[in-house]
Amino acid sequence: MGNDRSLRRVIKSKNTVLIAILAAVVLMFYLLNSNYLSGDNLRGVMQSMSITGIMAVGAACLLIGGGIDLATSMEALFGGVLCGLLIKAGIPWPLSVLLTLAAGGLIGGAVAYLVAHLGMMPFIASIALSNVIRGVNLVMTNAQNVPVPTEGFWVLGSSNVLNIIPTPFVIMLILLVIYGLVLHKTQFGRNIYLIGGNQFAARLSGLSPKKIRTILYVNNGVLAAFSGIVVASRMHSASPSSLSDSQMDAITAAILGGVSFMGGSGGMGGCLIGILLLNFFNNGLNVLSLESHWQTIAQGALLIAALTMDYFNEKSREKSLKAGAALKQ
């Protein structure tokens, strides 16, 4: 089983590179500003990463299954706003949360309908839908923030586990573990990889790519809405426009973590590293109080740097395999 071991080594090495980059990023910012690793700041990073992180879980599953939803962050805002309005209308907050999750699922289902059933390109369909949702968010709120003064509701976003670790971060970790198990241990998870790898072959082998992909879009909508709810709970108010800067963050985190853009490969471990990397980097720029436009440039550069590292890593692996083959002859 020599091949088995080398395969594992490759996967490992990919993650190893990412972890090395992560460590380098953290070290660099720590040297630039020692407050970077202070407890307060760490808790801040955990808070903010859980928002992208929860979305990234759904986005990664969708990418592995060969889909993509560029409306994810708008779905999240929709979730926050809707939940806020429901609570404001006097519906108990747990029920509001459930109703909002269902609504998020419906929006995911709408994307799935356009993509999986009408056969539209996922990019185009989800961007179009993203505009519609943004408009709906503004109409629902009259472009004003929706304050949510219900203290019970704050527990999701503002509380800490064991008085130290922010609850949203723990929720994110739990989701990563659950979805990791689903992906690698269950029939449904395997089906996701198979339809992402080749939907035609999968269908001829008795799988239902349409159905599976629909579930993934719905799941993505539910998780997006949930992350919006967590934001509202943390801010004690829901904004109809706050996340629009981080349009692509969830997808970026997944791809940084080695989820293939082409579908069929990736996993939750890599996804976590991607989330950590993206957020420690963004936070580092904040701590340095760099002007926000420069931050945008730096974030783009990070993605390019990570992809480049990955490219060279791949190259050197090929070279060593080649050398091995020549030796064998």
């Binding site: 198990l181 029939q187 790898g197 080749n198 035609f200 072959a201």
Partner: peptide, 28 residues
């Protein structure tokens, strides 16, 4: 194009249609 999921393993390609029959509880 229609027969194989090229980037997955031999094992995964062979068991594709019978995953439902090799479950142990929730897991494969």
């Amino acid at each position: 194009d229609q027969g194989l999921v090229l980037w997955r393993s031999i094992r995964e390609n062979i068991t594709m249609p019978v995953l439902g029959r090799i479950r142990k509880g929730l897991f494969l």
